[in-house]
């Protein structure tokens, strides 16, 4: 380009980002410079074409089935740590580092928890504002006795068993100190679960206790997922 105007300047001109004097000056220049005129013409045509491009494109296959499987409680909780693992599940590519990616695991768990809480709770007519933080977005619990909570508990127990089994299979792959850390944390959570269960049995009708117990189960799941991932990556 032989003229003195920088192409970036023409970008700003076309995008309407010049001040009024700059714009007037550019227009004067355009009258005499064909190269710049062609550039402006191209830029305007380009934007017009871009504006006309479809905003929506359909993927070649329906992605919902996969997605549904990934947000439903059973599928998410039965993640096969020996296979692709939760990182891949999230589309997070394996990095070269060998240890942990707990943040990604925690993400999986948010998915798992919203799935499983929905599994036993949620009367859609109730005010969502009454839901408790930590189980946000969930309506009031329908369970207020252990009996009512049982189906949910079975769901949790299944998921926890799977994770414990996986953890146990790999026990010796883990360095002893890390194992100690995991076990100590599990004891804390288990104590909380026992306490919450006892409270539900003692005070049937206290509907909030079901949320408390569910929250403790969720935390146990969450912690086990992280622990397993840790071994997976180490």
């Amino acid at each position: 380009m032989n003229c003195s105007i920088r192409e970036e300047h023409l970008d700003d001109y076309v995008d309407g980002m010049l001040t009024e004097p700059q714009r007037a000056e550019t227009e004067r220049h355009l009258e005499s410079c064909e190269t710049c005129r062609l550039t402006v013409e191209f830029l305007r045509g380009l934007q017009a074409t871009a504006d006309a491009m479809p905003r929506e494109i359909k993927p070649s296959r329906d992605l919902w089935a996969d997605l549904e499987a990934r947000i439903s409680p059973t599928r998410v909780m039965q993640v096969d740590f020996r296979g692709r693992g939760p990182l891949a599940l999230l589309g997070v590519r394996s990095v070269r580092g060998q240890w942990v990616a707990l943040a990604a695991a925690a993400l999986v768990l948010v998915v798992a928890s919203s799935g499983i809480t929905a599994y036993f709770m949620g009367n859609p007519e109730l005010d969502p504002g009454a839901g408790l933080p930590g189980l946000s977005g969930v309506g009031e619990p329908v369970a207020s006795t252990m009996e009512e909570f049982r189906p949910a508990e079975i769901g949790y127990a299944k998921a926890i068993d799977d994770l414990l089994q996986t953890l146990d299979d790999r026990r010796e792959a883990l360095d002893p100190e890390t194992l100690t850390v995991i076990e100590a944390n599990l004891r804390v959570i288990d104590a909380a679960i026992r306490r919450a269960r006892a409270a539900i049995e003692e005070y049937p009708g206290e509907s909030e206790l079901a949320l408390v117990l569910a929250d403790n189960y969720r935390k146990k799941l969450e912690f086990l997922q992280r622990a397993n991932l840790l071994i997976e990556r180490s």
């Binding site: 992605l63 996969d66 997605l67 947000i71 999230l90 589309g91 993400l107 948010v110 998915v111 919203s114």
Partner: peptide, 10 residues
């Protein structure tokens, strides 16, 4: 796209 919806869900 799936990841985005998964993320949205969570």
């Amino acid at each position: 796209s799936q990841d985005a919806f998964l993320r949205a869900w969570s």
